[in-house]
Each structure stands twice: as C-alpha cells, then as structure tokens.
Amino acid sequence: MRERYRNPVVVITGASSGIGRATALAFAERGAAVVLSARREQPLRDVAAACEQAGGKALVVPADVTNEAAVVEIARRAADAFGRLDVWVNNAAVTLFGLFEQTPSEPYRRVIETNLFGYIHGARAALAQFRRQGSGVLINVASMVSKIPEPYISAYVASKHAIRGFSQSLRQELAVLHARDIHVCTVMPATIDTPLFQHAGNYTGRAPRAMPPVYPPERVARTIVRLARTPRREIYVGSSAPQLALLSFLAPGLAERLLARSVDRLHLHHGRTAYATNGNLFTPMVEGTAATGGWKPRRERRFLRAAAVGLAALAPALLGFLWLRPRLSA
C-alpha cells in the first residue's frame, strides 16, 4: 500500500457533497485517481472537474448504494479504468429525525438500507478486489454515535452502531485469513459542517440544525487520507467525540441524560416549526452540493468545559475503583 500511495486509486461513495466531496479533493490534491459515486450525477461531475484541477484524475460513476449490483459496477469500472483499487471509502449516508414511535416504518428502513447495507455492498465489492490484489484499505465513515447514542435519530444511531460492529468483524475475519495487507478502518466524526442536516428526513415538527461543537469536513477528509497511508482500527474526529465516549464509559447514565438534554435543546429549533418530510431518503435533493452546510463551527469550548467538569467529578470515584479492584479480587 505504501508503494502505491503516491498515486492511489480511491473510490468514494457519497462524493457529491459533505465529507465525500472534501475527501475527494483532499486525495486529488495528492495526485490520487478518485472514483466518485453518489446518486446525483451533475454534482459529481462538478467535483470531478475540481479534482482534476487540483492535480488528480477523476471518474464519475453514479449509483445508489442500496443497489448491490450498482455498487459492484463501481468497483469494476474503477479497476478497468485504473488497473487496481487501493482505497474504498464507504461514506454515503442519510439521516432521519423523529421520535421512534412517531416515525413511519419506510423512512426508518431506508436509513438502515442506505447507511448499513450500502456499506455492506461497498465492503463486498472492495474486499473482492483487495483479495485479488492482496492489499487495500477499506475505510468506513461511521459517527461518534457509533458509541454514544442520541435521541431523535435512532435509525441513524442503529446503523452507525452496526457499522462499527461490522468493521470489527471484518478485521477479525481478515486476521483469520492472514490477509495482513488488507485493512478495515472506522472513522467516528463528531458533528460535522455538511448539508446532511438540510437533507435529513424529519418528523419532529421542529427544524434540525447541526449541534455544537461543529467541525469542518476537511478535518475528516485529512483523517481519511492519513488512514489510507497508515491504517488504524478506529479513530475519532473532533475533540468532543473522545471526551463524550470517555464520559459514557465512566458514567453511562449521566452521559445519556446529558446527550438527551443537549440534543433536545441544541439539535432541534424550539421556535422554528417544520413540515414532515422524507428529505433525500428516497429522492436526491437539488440543494446542498457543497462540502459545507453553512453551520458555523462554534461553542466548542463551552461544550468541552461541561464535559471536562463531568469527567473531573468522576475522577475520584474512578481512581478509587481502580485502587480497590485488585484488593477485592484477592
């Protein structure tokens, strides 16, 4: 993989906007050949032009990741065009806001089909090519909610938890097969400034927004580029994610209450109503083709200060537990 990194061939799903677009540009700036896939063809062509201008090569392959045959075709066209496939970035995702009992079944199912089965289809296509080559890196873009659940987005949380577990199982199977040069990485970003929230399905009656602290998509893109060169099992993006994960590990009940209140107050507008919508779950939206969604990165210090206070309050109890545990088991 290291030998090929100078000009890697990289497939990116969900490349028409958000993290996918930022990642495509980040690879292209380093001379990569990027294979861009999403449902919207014209935004993909715009990204391809930007990638070629940045110094890379680009191939556009429109596809809906819920269609396994279409995803297999992405891999075939990548190999035919460039002779190999070095990196596959599973990134295409949708989300849905709504209390579980008030959310219709079909939109709920669509989130699972896109986010989880889309990644499963991508993994099948990528690993088949990697096995033929003997090397490759599969990067699954999950979320911090893979470990830290939130209310109102239970379909998204379920899919991202599943992606993390799926990635863990794949790594174990590759170890059994002694496929040392094939890697599976899981990226778990905090809230990222992308059009995901404008594209979201919504059954809350309130307008969704990015919950602070908000990080730029380029930060995730840089992480993905580093993983292609130096694979790691799992990595967070955004300093709020590991702090909340630690809080959840030390005090799961407190973390659940904190996230419940924060999401209710900060993720959904209290004074701005919204009509029920499926967003882009079934049909792509014309709006939102940029890497960013217009959500200003803000409030990180305030948010992290609250998390730090919670961790500081728990520190004495944790230290006491660690001191007592060997003595209790003696």
Rank of each mutant, 00 (worst) to 15 (best):
1 M>Y: 07
18 G>T: 11
24 A>F: 01
27 F>K: 07
32 A>C: 03
33 A>P: 04
38 A>T: 02
40 R>K: 13
60 V>L: 09
67 N>I: 00
67 N>R: 14
69 A>N: 06
72 V>T: 09
76 R>E: 12
79 A>T: 13
80 D>N: 12
84 R>F: 05
86 D>M: 07
89 V>Q: 00
92 A>R: 08
99 L>P: 00
104 P>C: 10
104 P>K: 13
107 P>W: 11
113 E>P: 02
114 T>E: 03
118 G>C: 07
121 H>L: 07
121 H>C: 03
122 G>C: 06
122 G>I: 07
124 R>N: 09
131 R>Y: 05
138 L>N: 09
146 S>A: 15
146 S>E: 05
147 K>P: 02
147 K>M: 14
154 S>K: 00
155 A>H: 05
160 K>Q: 11
166 F>N: 01
173 E>R: 14
173 E>M: 08
186 T>F: 07
193 D>R: 01
194 T>I: 07
202 N>Y: 14
211 M>W: 07
212 P>N: 05
212 P>F: 06
218 E>F: 01
222 R>D: 09
224 I>E: 05
224 I>N: 06
225 V>Y: 05
226 R>D: 15
227 L>I: 14
229 R>I: 04
232 R>Y: 00
234 E>V: 10
235 I>Q: 11
236 Y>S: 09
240 S>Q: 12
241 A>D: 03
246 L>V: 10
249 F>Q: 14
259 L>I: 15
262 S>Y: 15
269 H>C: 10
272 R>S: 05
278 N>L: 12
283 T>H: 14
286 V>S: 11
287 E>T: 11
292 T>S: 15
300 E>S: 13
302 R>F: 09
308 A>M: 09
311 L>S: 03
318 L>F: 03
